[in-house]
Protein backbone atom coordinates (compact mmCIF):
# COMPACT_ATOMS: atom_id res chain seq x y z
CA UNK A 1 0.00 0.00 0.00
CA UNK A 2 1.17 3.49 -0.70
CA UNK A 3 2.60 5.56 2.08
CA UNK A 4 0.72 8.45 3.64
CA UNK A 5 2.30 11.70 4.72
CA UNK A 6 1.71 12.45 8.40
CA UNK A 7 2.80 15.34 10.58
CA UNK A 8 2.96 15.35 14.35
CA UNK A 9 4.87 16.82 17.21
CA UNK A 10 7.08 14.39 19.13
CA UNK A 11 8.55 15.64 22.40
CA UNK A 12 7.89 19.19 21.23
CA UNK A 13 9.58 18.74 17.85
CA UNK A 14 7.41 19.07 14.75
CA UNK A 15 8.03 16.50 12.05
CA UNK A 16 6.61 15.23 8.81
CA UNK A 17 7.14 11.65 7.61
CA UNK A 18 5.71 9.16 5.15
CA UNK A 19 4.39 5.95 6.70
CA UNK A 20 2.58 2.85 5.55
CA UNK A 21 -0.89 2.70 7.13
CA UNK A 22 0.08 -0.57 8.82
CA UNK A 23 3.00 0.97 10.72
CA UNK A 24 2.23 0.93 14.42
CA UNK A 25 3.06 4.02 16.44
CA UNK A 26 5.60 2.11 18.51
CA UNK A 27 7.50 0.97 15.40
CA UNK A 28 7.33 4.49 13.96
CA UNK A 29 8.85 5.93 17.14
CA UNK A 30 11.53 3.27 17.53
CA UNK A 31 12.53 2.59 13.94
CA UNK A 32 11.77 5.75 11.98
CA UNK A 33 12.58 8.27 14.71
CA UNK A 34 15.16 6.17 16.62
CA UNK A 35 13.37 6.89 19.89
CA UNK A 36 14.02 3.48 21.41
CA UNK A 37 13.04 4.44 24.97
CA UNK A 38 9.51 3.25 24.25
CA UNK A 39 9.69 -0.53 24.61
CA UNK A 40 7.75 -3.37 23.02
CA UNK A 41 6.81 -5.94 25.64
CA UNK A 42 3.77 -8.11 25.04
CA UNK A 43 2.85 -6.39 21.75
CA UNK A 44 -0.83 -7.06 22.52
CA UNK A 45 -1.80 -4.04 24.70
CA UNK A 46 -1.54 -5.83 28.03
CA UNK A 47 1.85 -4.93 29.52
CA UNK A 48 2.10 -1.14 29.09
CA UNK A 49 5.85 -1.08 28.25
CA UNK A 50 4.96 0.86 25.09
CA UNK A 51 2.90 3.52 26.91
CA UNK A 52 3.24 7.01 25.42
CA UNK A 53 1.34 10.24 25.87
CA UNK A 54 -0.80 11.32 22.90
CA UNK A 55 -2.74 14.60 23.10
CA UNK A 56 -2.70 14.46 26.89
CA UNK A 57 -3.77 10.84 27.25
CA UNK A 58 -1.81 7.70 28.06
CA UNK A 59 -2.03 5.19 25.22
CA UNK A 60 -0.39 1.91 24.30
CA UNK A 61 1.69 2.56 21.19
CA UNK A 62 1.60 -1.10 20.10
CA UNK A 63 -2.12 -0.85 19.43
CA UNK A 64 -2.45 2.40 17.55
CA UNK A 65 -1.36 3.15 14.01
CA UNK A 66 1.08 5.97 13.34
CA UNK A 67 -1.35 7.39 10.73
CA UNK A 68 -3.95 7.73 13.48
CA UNK A 69 -1.64 10.21 15.23
CA UNK A 70 -1.58 12.62 12.30
CA UNK A 71 -1.80 16.12 13.83
CA UNK A 72 -1.19 14.85 17.36
CA UNK A 73 1.22 15.84 20.09
CA UNK A 74 3.16 12.78 21.20
CA UNK A 75 5.41 12.55 24.22
CA UNK A 76 7.73 9.64 24.94
CA UNK A 77 10.05 8.92 27.86
CA UNK A 78 12.76 10.84 25.99
CA UNK A 79 10.66 13.98 26.50
CA UNK A 80 10.78 13.85 30.30
CA UNK A 81 14.30 15.14 31.04
CA UNK A 82 14.80 18.82 30.22
CA UNK A 83 18.15 20.57 29.70
CA UNK A 84 20.11 17.56 30.95
CA UNK A 85 18.21 17.47 34.27
CA UNK A 86 16.09 14.47 35.22
CA UNK A 87 12.36 15.02 35.52
CA UNK A 88 11.01 14.70 39.07
CA UNK A 89 9.45 11.36 38.07
CA UNK A 90 12.78 9.99 36.81
CA UNK A 91 14.54 11.24 39.94
CA UNK A 92 11.88 9.56 42.11
CA UNK A 93 12.29 6.19 40.33
CA UNK A 94 16.06 6.52 40.89
CA UNK A 95 15.81 7.49 44.56
CA UNK A 96 13.14 4.92 45.47
CA UNK A 97 14.70 2.07 43.46
CA UNK A 98 11.56 1.97 41.32
CA UNK A 99 13.21 -0.36 38.81
CA UNK A 100 15.01 -3.68 38.73
CA UNK A 101 15.68 -4.84 35.17
CA UNK A 102 14.31 -1.53 33.86
CA UNK A 103 12.36 -2.90 30.91
CA UNK A 104 8.96 -1.63 32.09
CA UNK A 105 10.38 1.64 33.43
CA UNK A 106 9.84 3.97 30.42
CA UNK A 107 6.18 2.95 30.26
CA UNK A 108 5.83 3.25 34.03
CA UNK A 109 7.30 6.75 34.07
CA UNK A 110 5.36 8.16 31.13
CA UNK A 111 2.16 6.70 32.61
CA UNK A 112 3.02 8.17 36.05
CA UNK A 113 3.64 11.51 34.34
CA UNK A 114 0.07 11.61 33.03
CA UNK A 115 -1.45 10.11 36.19
CA UNK A 116 0.06 12.89 38.32
CA UNK A 117 -1.45 15.50 36.04
CA UNK A 118 -4.85 13.89 36.20
CA UNK A 119 -4.53 13.51 39.97
CA UNK A 120 -1.62 15.44 41.58
CA UNK A 121 -2.18 13.94 45.07
CA UNK A 122 -3.24 10.35 44.52
CA UNK A 123 -3.83 7.89 47.36
CA UNK A 124 -1.94 4.59 47.24
CA UNK A 125 -5.08 2.89 45.91
CA UNK A 126 -5.50 5.52 43.21
CA UNK A 127 -1.87 4.98 42.15
CA UNK A 128 -2.39 1.22 41.99
CA UNK A 129 -5.53 1.63 39.88
CA UNK A 130 -3.97 4.37 37.76
CA UNK A 131 -0.88 2.24 37.07
CA UNK A 132 -2.83 -1.01 36.55
CA UNK A 133 -2.17 -1.01 32.80
CA UNK A 134 1.58 -1.38 33.36
CA UNK A 135 3.14 -4.70 34.33
CA UNK A 136 6.52 -5.23 35.98
CA UNK A 137 7.73 -8.80 35.50
CA UNK A 138 10.38 -8.31 38.21
CA UNK A 139 7.26 -7.67 40.37
CA UNK A 140 8.88 -4.55 41.78
CA UNK A 141 5.55 -2.88 42.37
CA UNK A 142 6.13 -1.66 45.95
CA UNK A 143 8.98 0.61 44.97
CA UNK A 144 7.20 1.75 41.82
CA UNK A 145 4.29 2.90 44.00
CA UNK A 146 6.76 4.59 46.37
CA UNK A 147 8.43 6.32 43.42
CA UNK A 148 5.11 7.72 42.19
CA UNK A 149 4.31 8.92 45.73
CA UNK A 150 7.79 10.48 45.96
CA UNK A 151 7.32 12.26 42.64
CA UNK A 152 3.87 13.51 43.68
CA UNK A 153 5.41 15.03 46.82
CA UNK A 154 8.32 16.62 44.96
CA UNK A 155 6.05 18.08 42.32
CA UNK A 156 3.52 19.51 44.77
CA UNK A 157 6.28 20.84 47.09
CA UNK A 158 7.95 22.59 44.18
CA UNK A 159 4.64 24.36 43.63
CA UNK A 160 5.11 23.75 39.95
CA UNK A 161 2.52 22.05 37.88
CA UNK A 162 3.90 19.10 35.98
CA UNK A 163 4.78 20.51 32.58
CA UNK A 164 1.74 20.08 30.39
Amino acid sequence: MSKQLISMSVNGKKLEQAVEPRTLLVHFLREQLNLTGTHIGCDTSHCGACTVDVDGKSLKACTILAVQCHGSEVMTVEGLAQGGALHAIQDAFYKEHGLQCGFCTPGMMIRAYRLLQENPNPSEDEIRIGMSGNLCRCTGYQNIIKAVQHAAKTLSASGLKVAA
Binding site: L59, K60, S132, G133
Partner: peptide, 9 residues
Amino acid sequence: IADPQVRNR
Protein backbone atom coordinates in the same frame (compact mmCIF):
# COMPACT_ATOMS: atom_id res chain seq x y z
CA ILE B 1 -12.87 -3.20 31.43
CA ALA B 2 -9.16 -3.43 30.55
CA ASP B 3 -6.91 -0.71 32.06
CA PRO B 4 -6.62 3.11 31.96
CA GLN B 5 -4.65 3.28 28.70
CA VAL B 6 -6.93 0.85 26.87
CA ARG B 7 -10.03 2.64 28.23
CA ASN B 8 -8.75 5.86 26.63
CA ARG B 9 -9.07 4.18 23.21
